[in-house]
Simulated assay, not measured.
Amino acid sequence: MNDRYGSDVLAGDWRKAGRPVIPEKAATKDLVIEEVATGFCGAVVRIEKNIVTLEDRFGKLRLFPLGPGFLLDGKPVVLVAPQKAAPAGRGRTASGSFAVENAAARVALPSRIFVEGRHDAELVEKVWGADLRIEGVVVEYLEGVDDLDAIVREFKPGPGRKVGVLVDHLVKGSKESRIADAVAAGPYGTHVLVVGHPYIDIWQAVKPERLGIKVWPTIPRTVEWKKGICASFGWPHDEQADIARAWQRILGQVRTFADLEPALLGRVEELIDFVTAP
């Protein structure tokens, strides 16, 4: 007979009825999480048994037991130990492409990608390096764009011998944009693609959440930008070596393309497509 009143109301755990279910979150390395009781916010650096170690942006370490009492993006979660990964199928590179196992790098193509800025070049290598080696694309560090026209003329681009250039802080009306326009209008313009990102520095292309902040700090024009960023994090910034170490800390938070802003991702992919097209 159909029971119009349903099953026994006392069946099951009635004490949990109506309570919100707090989701579990695996404490994967570099996950930025906040411990509610202390307000300590940091990235997961290791898991030992039922203890998670967090490191904040100042390099301070704190240990907490796994379980409830954590916030992720302001919402409560139950922090649990990550499960050991099962043997996976085809892996992916840091750029999101399918990895080609045991593949030797191709002989370098005649085409080149020039990247302005040492930090920019290091970031491109970290995320796209595996893909570029498979494609046989060489990336060259470009110290500045002032001599870009001369570099292009010396390279002599042509069909099957293209040049892609990633320029730092390429915005309309800037010196960089005028140089890029001149190259595009030059005799080799058909075989050259100059693109850029809108950020003050490549550091900003890393999503701020990877550093435990919501937005990158605004630095007054009277302060050197990188030094101002370091100061806002409480990092040393008096010497160039301090700036270099700061960049390595930021770069260390980049694991895959998902940690970068779309405005950079699209430009790099555009360059790769351009120089590898038949």
Rank of each mutant, 00 (worst) to 15 (best):
12 G>V: 08
12 G>P: 03
12 G>C: 08
12 G>E: 13
13 D>F: 00
13 D>S: 01
13 D>V: 01
14 W>G: 04
14 W>R: 12
14 W>S: 08
14 W>Q: 13
14 W>V: 15
14 W>C: 12
15 R>S: 09
15 R>D: 04
15 R>Y: 06
15 R>N: 04
16 K>F: 09
16 K>A: 13
16 K>C: 07
16 K>M: 11
16 K>P: 04
17 A>I: 12
17 A>T: 13
17 A>H: 09
17 A>Y: 12
18 G>R: 00
18 G>M: 01
18 G>W: 02
18 G>D: 02
19 R>G: 08
19 R>Q: 11
19 R>W: 14
20 P>E: 07
21 V>P: 06
21 V>G: 06
21 V>S: 09
22 I>P: 01
22 I>T: 04
22 I>N: 02
22 I>Y: 03
23 P>N: 06
23 P>T: 01
23 P>M: 06
23 P>F: 04
23 P>E: 01
24 E>Y: 04
24 E>D: 09
25 K>Y: 05
25 K>I: 14
25 K>N: 04
25 K>H: 14
25 K>W: 07
26 A>E: 11
26 A>R: 05
27 A>K: 00
27 A>C: 05
27 A>W: 00
28 T>E: 10
28 T>M: 12
28 T>W: 13
28 T>N: 11
28 T>Y: 09
29 K>S: 13
30 D>L: 12
30 D>A: 07
30 D>R: 13
30 D>S: 12
30 D>Q: 12
31 L>D: 09
31 L>T: 00
31 L>V: 11
31 L>M: 09
31 L>I: 02
31 L>Q: 02
32 V>R: 06
32 V>C: 11
32 V>P: 03
32 V>F: 07
33 I>Q: 00
33 I>W: 01
34 E>T: 15
35 E>M: 03
35 E>G: 02
36 V>W: 14
36 V>I: 14
37 A>G: 13
37 A>R: 14
37 A>F: 10
37 A>P: 08
37 A>I: 08
37 A>L: 10
38 T>E: 11
38 T>I: 10
38 T>G: 03
38 T>N: 09
38 T>W: 05
39 G>A: 05
39 G>D: 08
39 G>P: 00
40 F>K: 09
40 F>E: 04
40 F>V: 04
41 C>Q: 15
41 C>N: 14
41 C>A: 15
41 C>S: 14
42 G>S: 07
43 A>W: 06
44 V>E: 00
44 V>I: 00
44 V>D: 00
45 V>H: 08
45 V>K: 03
45 V>I: 15
45 V>T: 12
46 R>P: 07
46 R>C: 07
47 I>W: 09
47 I>V: 07
47 I>T: 02
47 I>N: 04
48 E>Y: 12
48 E>Q: 10
48 E>A: 14
49 K>I: 08
49 K>M: 03
49 K>H: 14
50 N>W: 05
51 I>Q: 03
